[in-house]
Design a protein around this nucleic acid. Structure first.
Lengths: 202, 202
DNA sequence: GTCGCCGTTGACAACCTGTCAACGACGGGG
DNA sequence: CCCCGTCGTTGACAGGTTGTCAACGGCGAC
């Protein structure tokens, strides 16, 4: 643990945490969860292993911090959507989603490879993200959600979020889908799902 | 490692493998991957730990064998579907899917909890299952698939398979969706997806 | 009866995670 | 100007885990 002579060994706490987290993220992007060891992370950050524990606690927490950071993409600017046709709104949303992915492609491939090793905790992070955007979408479309319909809506949106990510994976990492394919698929299915939910709710 | 006196310590190889795999499956159903140790599996099977390695190799392979076994549900009897309306076919398929789940509910919750801890290898197992049923469906609907459309179709079906599993999870383990909700959602989205693919292919 | 095959296991080495006491640079008070 | 407390940092330790190997012992073949 020699440390670069020119650089001060001692760093401001938040900077050091940030540096470790960034190194850890880079590692988790390339290998699945259980092929990355705390020793690897510490070595990548040029730091002793207990320091990683000092900042994050357990290894799982390092991983979750990395997932959280990567999952916190600039949220879709739903506010931009003025009140227009439902189909237009859907098309715009899907288009925004896909452009966001292509703009932050490395981050997305990172997230997709990281979340494949995930458990319930990773699912929780993704679900929360899905629910907030789904709520925004519902408000935008003028849905009245309360009681049982809300739970149903959240369940459906979580499932659809998983679908959208999987479609994106097929485009960005598997390469079996083109952007056009993703667009058509998502627009068609999302429209159908919304129609379905709207008619059932009434 | 006393072993039950009445039972012979030495077993036929395939039986022993089967017994270990069944115990391992039971464990992986209840805890995520990295909270189950080889020691646990061996103890559950009443056997020394090296024996598990002897039969399966690495721990990951035990896990994959368990996933594979659980994922190999009685496949949807697609052959029963006679040539009828597309919408009728879709409705029947979704209904079969949901009934299969409710009939084998323990197995399905098992698979859903196991696959949340999965990596690329688990994804591969699921994908293969998705592709075979998707191919059967395509043949049933009379699609002509070759070249690029085939890859597109496989990508889309993999994504939709993930969606269907997630919907099922919301029904069976999260409880935020009723069976009726799942039915409507899946019918609506699957119809839309098929329409979409059919019109693009032509 | 004896021999060899193979299911089975104890023991070992390498690794990994999580914890603790201790070291030492940095800034403030005397 | 020196001393001291704070806090970032680390070496070392304990417990547990995976994977491997040689060796034991029951069971069928000859």
């Amino acid at each position: 643990m020699a440390g670069v002579p020119g650089q001060p060994r001692r760093m401001v706490a938040l900077d050091r945490r940030e540096q470790i987290l960034s190194c850890a993220t880079r590692l988790f992007e390339s290998k699945p969860y259980d092929e990355v060891s705390m020793t690897d992370i510490a070595a990548a950050a040029g730091v002793a292993r207990p320091l990683v524990h000092h900042y994050f606690g357990t290894k799982r927490e390092v991983f979750l911090a990395a997932v959280h950071r990567v999952a916190d993409l600039p949220p879709l600017a739903l506010a931009e959507l003025s009140a227009s046709t439902l189909s237009e709104s859907v098309e715009t949303i899907v288009d925004h989603f896909l452009t966001a992915i292509s703009r932050h492609q490395p981050l997305w491939t990172a997230m997709l490879t990281m979340t494949t090793s995930g458990g319930d905790d990773v699912r929780a992070i993704l679900r929360q993200s899905d629910e907030t955007t789904a709520d925004a979408l519902a408000q935008l479309l003028g849905f009245q959600l309360e009681g049982a319909p809300l739970a149903t809506y959240h369940g459906a949106s979580a499932a659809f979020g998983s679908f959208a990510r999987e479609v994106a994976r097929e485009w960005v990492v598997e390469g079996r889908l083109q952007r056009e394919d993703c667009y058509r698929l998502l627009v068609a299915t999302l429209s159908a799902a919304i129609d379905q939910l709207a008619t059932t709710a009434s």
